[in-house]
Amino acid sequence: MKAQSQLNLPTIILGIFAALVLLIGLNSFIIINPGQAGVLSILGKARDGALLEGLHFKPPLVSNVDVYDVTVQKFEVPAQSSTKDLQDLSASFAINFRLDPLQVVKIRREQGTLQNIVSKVIAPQTQEAFKIAAARRTVEEAITKREELKDDFDLALGERLDKYGILVLDTSVVDLAFSPEFARAVEEKQIAEQQAQRAVYVAREAEQQALAEVNRAKGKAEAQRLLAETLKAQGGNLVLQKEAIEAWRLGGAQMPKVLVMGGNSQNNVPFLFNLGDLSDSELPQPVAKR
């Protein structure tokens, strides 16, 4: 029994040694996948040179590798500022960025984790960049020239984050808000503009109506002139005849069944009456022959 234990002891030791070698061997290499970059630290000190995608050796037991995601990241960051005319302006920006793979060692030494990068670098620098962009224009210009505001913001933010190893790919203004006082002022201005436009419309409409009245008056005067010339050529009594007929038409009387003219139709006013309005007793009676 004792001899068997002595025979198994070398086997056990060999097995333990093989396991240790295998464990050390497995911990001596690391694979960096596409979209990642690593920082090698030996005994707590970061080594220069980023570990890019591929297989890399690292000293076993005394080293550690911090892996960073260098693909595109997106965070939404709020910001507040005052405009050139001292109006409060707030915005929310969606920022697309990624870490520079060649500067992850610097990022590891200065910032640490991605959460620290967002909270300690991106958020405050976004605030400062927005202050620079907003201070160059009034609040009304910030709203009406939103693209120019965004361009100034992108330029300021890109310059500030580049020195931290952060590459800004794109930004977008998610929300842009101003103070309630300015909102009321804008509403009042819009109402005043609408009222002014309404006044211009009413004035133009009145002008068109007046012009139409002038044209109608001119047309009526011309018609009267032509009528006067015609009547003058045929005698003045025709004027009275025309006026009598016009008065009959405007009065709404029924069409007369009898129109009596004088012997000289050119000089007498027509006499109009309706036979239907007369009773039988009023009609002329035939005289019997003897």
Rank of each mutant, 00 (worst) to 15 (best):
A3Y: 03
Q6L: 15
L7D: 14
F17R: 01
I24S: 09
I31A: 04
I32S: 06
P34H: 08
S41E: 07
L43M: 14
G44T: 15
A46Y: 01
A46S: 10
L55F: 11
K58A: 01
P59D: 08
N64M: 05
D66F: 11
V67T: 14
V70T: 10
V72D: 12
P78A: 01
T83Q: 06
T83P: 02
K84I: 05
L86F: 15
Q87G: 05
L89Y: 05
S90I: 12
S90G: 13
R109N: 14
Q111A: 09
T113A: 12
I122E: 10
Q127F: 02
K131C: 12
A134S: 10
A134E: 05
A135F: 10
R137Q: 15
T138I: 09
V139H: 08
E140A: 10
A142F: 03
K150F: 00
F153H: 04
L155K: 08
A156C: 08
D162I: 05
D162H: 03
G165N: 02
I166S: 06
V168E: 01
L169A: 04
V173S: 00
A177F: 00
F178V: 13
P180N: 12
E181T: 07
A183E: 11
E187N: 03
Q194C: 08
A196H: 09
A196C: 00
R198K: 06
A199N: 08
V202Q: 14
E205Q: 15
A210L: 15
A210R: 13
V214T: 12
K218E: 15
A233W: 02
Q234H: 01
G236T: 15
V239C: 07
V239K: 03
A244V: 14
L250S: 08
G252C: 09
G252Q: 11
V269M: 09
D277R: 06
D277A: 10
L278G: 04
E282R: 03
P284D: 07
